[in-house]
Design a protein around this nucleic acid. Structure first.
Length: 274
DNA sequence: CGGGCGGCCTGGAGGC
DNA sequence: TGCCTCCAGGCCGCCC
């Protein structure tokens, strides 16, 4: 579920409500996430520590503590991270529960258990295997069509797969890849290494525009995405191609198609994406 | 080696 | 409000 905008929305809603607060006890009710949760490590490192910042890198949330260590959270496909009153009953799939002094409980819930909750020791961020190979941030100042074109140079894979490869560009999943390609008028199957400079510029602009617009709308909620305060996002109302198979293209009136490549659905307009 | 694809999980939707 | 099948927005690791 969560791509860059959804993770960013969670970050922004969590940040003002948790910064300056101190962690209390840690409960790991289900350790079998994508990566096994290290119960004893979390119980040793978190209690008594103050949260200084909530950052985002790619689709990872990084809660920075006063020790310099990080609590790293990935939402996978169905993960939720939210702050709840301690009096509110726990729900099914609330796998990790951390008390936050004076604020309630930070709860990680993930039905499919594709997410992860991990400790990153002080100074370990730059060398962390999950963080150190990540590509460029689409909302960073150095992101541009020129940069994308250079990264794609020589690669024959379809541009959609290129956009979803986190070693090159981070934060773009299946929804926003389709949306950005439609926005830029680029066909998803075009070989990434052969796009013109002008197309890469259009794509870079479209990516930033789509991601920013979604953040403004609170992200895309299909079933159950929610920010850290439980509110849904409204960008689903603004999707131009994703999940619109058989509906009309808002730009050229042709019928939106769905195709499946490497097991993932891609939505596009045959009329205005080339 | 770059890249395609199966597998990890549960739950919701839709067909019967 | 039953049962079954299919499908899902991410990522890793195996394989060619």
């Amino acid at each position: 579920m969560p791509e860059l905008p959804e993770v960013e929305v969670v970050r922004r809603s969590l940040l003002p409500r948790i910064v300056g607060s101190r962690f209390g006890s840690v409960r790991v009710r289900e350790a079998r996430l994508r990566v096994r949760v290290d119960r004893s490590l979390l119980c040793r490192e978190l209690p008594g520590r103050t949260v200084l910042d909530v950052r985002r890198r790619a689709k990872y949330l990084l809660l920075e503590l006063d020790t310099g260590g990080l609590l790293m959270v990935h939402l996978g496909m169905t993960g939720h991270l939210g702050l709840f009153p301690a009096t509110e009953p726990l729900r099914k799939h609330d796998h990790v529960v951390i008390t936050v002094e004076g604020r309630g409980e930070l709860r990680f819930n993930d039905a499919r258990r594709f997410g992860l909750v991990q400790w990153v020791a002080p100074g370990g961020e730059r060398s962390h295997p999950r963080l150190c190979r990540l590509g460029v941030e689409p909302l960073a100042p150095d992101f541009s069509g020129t940069l994308l074109r250079r990264l794609a140079s020589g690669h024959r894979l379809p541009v959609k797969n290129f956009l979803m490869d986190s070693r090159r560009v981070v934060g773009i999943g299946n929804i926003y890849a389709s949306e950005a390609l439609w926005n830029a008028g680029v066909h998803p199957a075009r070989p990434a290494g052969r796009l013109s400079a002008a197309r890469w510029e259009r794509l870079a602009t479209a990516i930033r525009q789509v991601l920013s617009a979604s953040i403004q709308q609170g992200g895309t909620t299909f079933r159950d995405f929610a920010s850290a305060d439980g509110s849904p996002g409204y960008f689903a109302l603004h999707l131009d191609v994703y999940d619109r198979k058989g509906e009309r293209c808002r730009r050229c009136d042709r019928t939106i198609r769905r195709r499946v490549d490497s097991g993932r659905s891609t939505y596009y307009c045959p009329g205005c994406q080339h």
